[in-house]
Design a protein around this nucleic acid. Structure first.
Lengths: 148, 148
DNA sequence: TTTCGTGCAAAACCTTTGCAAAGTG
DNA sequence: CACTTTGCAAAGGTTTTGCACGAAA
């Protein structure tokens, strides 16, 4: 029972997310549920295409995914990430687990780095008068496998 | 004469850049010179459009700028940055002055944060087996003016 | 001279928008 | 029922590609 101070439990996240949806005055539709289910279950940032493919069962339109994600981003449920290839990617924003991405330039593999490791960054930003900082970084490098 | 340990002197940068160009087997053309001149003189990341506009005197094609930047990025002379609006921006990569960007979500103002402030990041990345790390972050927040 | 760079036009690509039909609370 | 959400088709904007001409080493 050594539960860490705050774990991300998928089903719990889905509940929270749906609650946030309602709170923001958005309706809970099947498609939105599917998108959130996918995002809360799987890790790592996904492109719109990938999210779309991920909920293929209940077929729906790409445009709809764009619009849903746009809403989710606006209310802070997902965060946008740029991996440098011109395609926007989105990730469920688990407030309990803020983290950075360590991305391999070669194979695009992504590793997670806990955000608590660098509290200094937020302090520096604050000292420059910035507020509402939510630093989640994309750190590029070459991973062990690809370097070999 | 209180010169900091390593300053970025525009003209010096241009020389270095042109040298790197040749070293990479690329030819030194007027257009490439203009692009590099612009990038080494001015600060902050620029979109392709902005670079194009910046060298209007010697009119040239947008496509050419795309291709030049693509080359410069490949040989490491410029680095790409995503500010979250779907437009790629580029910046001269001054090895002497690695830095992060602190970006205001509202007015898009950019402040520079010296990279040396966070040596820990590189260490963590290395501990995960990553090499060739060059962490330059985009940190989003809301600046003093916009918060008021 | 041979190879590389550029301009132009067209295509590819991701994302957004408008409108009518269907669904939600 | 009023209002939001969705699908479809089309447009918008950025970036890439092909080819012929021009310029650099």
């Amino acid at each position: 029972m050594k539960s860490k101070k705050s774990e991300c439990i998928p089903s719990e996240n889905l509940e929270t997310a749906l609650h946030e949806l309602k709170k923001a005055g958005l309706k809970v539709t099947p498609t939105r549920k599917m998108v959130l289910l996918h995002l809360t279950n799987a890790h790592g940032p996904f492109s719109i295409e990938e999210i779309h493919a991920g909920i293929k069962g209940k077929s729906c339109n790409l445009t709809t995914i764009y619009r849903i994600i746009s809403h989710l981003e606006a209310i802070g449920l997902v965060r946008r990430t740029d991996l440098g290839d011109g395609v926007a990617r989105y990730e469920y924003h688990c407030a309990e687990h803020p983290h950075h991405h360590l991305i391999c330039r070669e194979c695009k593999r992504i590793e997670i780095i806990d955000r608590d490791l660098f509290p200094e960054i937020e302090e520096v930003a604050k000292s420059k008068g910035f507020v509402q900082i939510n630093p989640c970084f994309e750190i590029y490098g070459v991973c062990k496998n690809c370097a070999a």
